[in-house]
Amino acid sequence: MNIFRLAGDMTHLASVLVLLLKIHTIKSCAGVSLKTQELYAIVFATRYLDILTSFVSIYNTLMKLIFLGSSFSIVWYMKYHKTVRRTYDRDQDTFRHWFLMLPCLLLALLIHEKFTFFEVLWTFSLYLEAVAILPQLVLLQRTRNIDNLTGQYIFLLGGYRGFYILNWIYRYFTEPHYVHWITWIAGLVQTLLYADFFYYYFLSWKNNKKLQLPA
């Protein structure tokens, strides 16, 4: 565990907590894409299938449980909670997530490190995580007015990706045989998707103005 990996995990955790805070205390999920949240739930479900069979550390298992639990509870809140679900921007959040899942599944069947059930699903989760933010970014673009918590949520998620790239660079130079092209390319694609959002986030922060995306 290096400082970049820890910082990445902590920003990831913080992003989830910010979203849960918004949903739990303000009882609102306005501006949050259910499609993206469902994709994350699928990402964690397929990636952490090995939770019972492969033990790395208490830290890892605990974080896996937190990410699984939080992603499914966010989906549950948005779909079934009587007040939260009324704040969901159903008509704007129309991205078809099947269009993301099918290509990711096909790609995972074609390009993987090992052709086993767990490994293909792990690879599928990497590809899907890379594009899972797209429905959220499309929703932001459509609603344009972004409240602070939603903006912070996406900012923290992007930060998590950035730290993971630093972690990979660090591990590549410090650990022998640490080469994972699939993870790196999927992670890089994912981080690049945030670039545009980051640009406007910093612009609004610099000018001390509310975050607004161009039409």
Binding site: R5, D9, H12, D50, S54, V56, S57, N60, M63, K64, F67, E113, K114, E119, W122, Y164, N167, E175, H177, Y178, V179, H180, W181, T183
Partner: peptide
């Protein structure tokens, strides 16, 4: 690559 070390990340 060593698959096991890949899976020590989240």
């Amino acid at each position: 690559g060593d698959i096991a070390s890949q899976h020590d990340e989240l």
